[in-house]
Write a protein that binds this DNA or RNA. Structure first.
Length: 275
DNA sequence: CCCCATCGTTGCGCCTGCAT
DNA sequence: ATGCAGGCGCAACGATGGGG
């Protein structure tokens, strides 16, 4: 069965299939078929996979590779057993998974995954934009591995902070993730362009952040150090904006006030929230 | 009342031009 | 030479309001 179609699983599931399917499984050892749904045309098509018991590990390998695939690609992959079979790959068949199963985005764009990467690499502005979300992804991975972090998910909403994080049993904290600029200042300190893309027409100060827009700011140093490392700070440690009352300055330096260990910063942020 | 076009706002940071 | 303010390319989304 397709795990994604039955996620979440509220009850025990019973499925039925034809004797013919069972015969095919015994004979072939491994087959995939489309589940027939009489009078249920509106439901999504589900691709079932059957194998003999010695193929259990193949089934796990297959479901790993097939997670989230649409039914067509799921069936296509299921029929290419050489990609997850216990048997050695046939001589000469030097294919990779991506040759058979396109990432959904690559399929939508009608490009090979490598071609999508070429497009990104070839468009300066696009690459720049992607780097922002990649930094966010690395931050999520970094925090997820950090002791004490019990929850860590992207927020993915316009106008909101980037990441939701919970430290131990504390409140849900919002994290703003920003890449530093490529060029450091004259003292070698990384610079952080800390403002929104544009201000609203009515209020020029709306371009700047204020202290309570998020609980923690994370600066990604990759543009300077070429390593996906982060520095953390509480917004109330940041300098005030010179002109806009209650806003934070937009030209920041990642200096000694920024911590490389997130733990103390998150603990302080949680305390600030609770008080 | 529904459909739509339009406007305003936002996400990525980087870049230019002016002030010092 | 350096710092800072503010504009920029591209594209998506939500609110708004006019037309039928």
């Amino acid at each position: 069965m397709d795990p994604e179609i039955h996620n979440p699983t509220k009850f025990f599931i019973r499925i039925e299939f034809k004797d013919k399917n069972a015969d095919d499984i015994k004979r072939e050892g491994w087959i995939a078929w489309e589940r027939s749904r009489i009078n249920r045309q509106d439901d999504p098509v589900e691709v079932l996979v059957g194998g003999t018991k010695d193929r259990l590990l193949d089934l796990i390998r297959f479901e790993r590779a097939a997670q989230g695939l649409d039914p067509g690609n799921r069936q296509l992959l299921a029929q290419k057993a050489e990609f997850f079979s216990r048997l050695p790959t046939a001589p000469g068949a030097n294919l990779s998974l991506t040759d058979v199963v396109q990432h959904p985005l690559a399929a939508e764009l009608r490009l090979a995954p490598e071609e999508v990467l070429d497009v990104i690499a070839g468009a300066q502005r696009l690459k720049m934009a992607v780097r922002g979300w990649v930094a966010e992804r690395h931050l999520k991975d970094t925090l997820a591995r950090t002791a004490g972090i019990t929850y860590c998910q992207p927020i993915n909403k316009e106008g909101a902070a980037d990441l939701h994080v919970r430290f131990e049993e504390g409140p849900l904290l919002t994290i703003e993730c920003k890449n530093v600029l490529r060029e450091t200042d004259s003292k070698g300190l990384p610079r952080l362009d800390f403002q929104r893309t544009r201000a609203s027409k009515a209020d020029p100060c709306s371009r700047y952040y204020s202290q309570d827009d998020f609980d923690v700011v994370a600066a990604c140093l990759h543009a300077v150090t070429e390593s996906w490392e982060f520095r953390y700070i509480l917004p109330n440690y940041l300098p005030q904006h010179g002109k806009c009352e209650g806003k934070l300055a937009s030209n920041l330096r990642v200096d000694h006030n920024w911590q490389s260990d997130p733990t103390a910063v998150f603990r302080a942020a949680a305390n600030a929230r609770n008080s």
